[in-house]
Design a protein around this nucleic acid. Structure first.
Lengths: 138, 138
DNA sequence: TTGCTCCTCACGTCACGTGAGGTGGC
DNA sequence: TTGCTCCTCACGTCACGTGAGGTGGC
């Protein structure tokens, strides 16, 4: 009576790359369904659960927020007519990612320049402190 | 007896670009010193306070964490021999910024490619969902 | 006097991670 | 039986933002 047992959470974590506590957190907030339990109360996962967690993990790796992921998971279970909605979510996220890149590239340039002047060592005042004391926008 | 009054928090917020609640938060965690108070208990800022808040704001705009900023502010008040320590903090942060940029650029490429295939409309399955269901690293 | 600004709490946000104290299962 | 894994619950993290309920100051 014990064949086809599910996978325990630790193994799921190792297979999906999602931390054990994070798996429980996703279940708690309703992002992923709660699995069956053993008689002792331990979680017992089936292949579907593992696929879902892997999906969430990849979506997180792509920077999607949990609300977006919730929507993406729902859409992924419907027919391909929903691709338009998926595209909206992904395209919006893409814009956000590009915005973050642009911001960081700007910071990088300012930091690189200031740190570079530190390295030359011939600045009268610390160039980094100077930048932080300079009254100009970003 | 009322000349040389300090600046109220609202004006400080407007001048420095730091939100009122954020100014109070910085004071609460000891990042910035608490200013004098009026008889009614209102905060009254002097030029030094305003300079400090502007410093914090620029450092935050460059992506420094509050602990780094605490250290940078302390160092900025010492002689220029501390530039080496400032440089370490800034250079470490620069490495982190570059790491984030690299991560985001990778995400951007994956998202752009998938969303691009959505736009052509001739994919059998939604390309974004496909990416999320594909078992490969990041 | 109006009403705009300021005050102090406390709780919410985002996506988890950490620890305490206790138990299942090979 | 050992000890590794799992359990729940509560609190911590980061850097704030929001709201409640009340008051100062021109």
């Amino acid at each position: 009576m014990k064949f086809a047992q599910g996978t325990p959470i630790g193994r799921v974590a190792a297979e999906t790359g999602v931390n054990i506590e994070t798996i429980r957190y996703y279940e708690k907030i309703g992002l992923t369904p709660g699995p069956d339990r053993t008689q002792g109360g331990h979680r017992s996962y089936g292949p579907d659960h593992i696929d879902r967690l892997a999906f969430v993990r990849r979506a997180r790796a792509l920077g999607f927020g949990l609300d977006d992921i919730r929507a993406l998971m729902a859409l992924s279970e419907q027919d391909r007519r929903t691709c338009a909605e998926v595209e909206v979510i992904a395209a919006t996220h893409l814009v956000a990612v590009r915005g973050k890149i642009a911001d960081l590239v700007r910071l990088e340039a300012v930091l690189r320049e200031a740190v570079g002047r530190c390295a030359t060592g011939d600045a009268p005042l610390c160039p980094v402190i100077q930048v932080l004391n300079t009254r100009k926008s970003l």
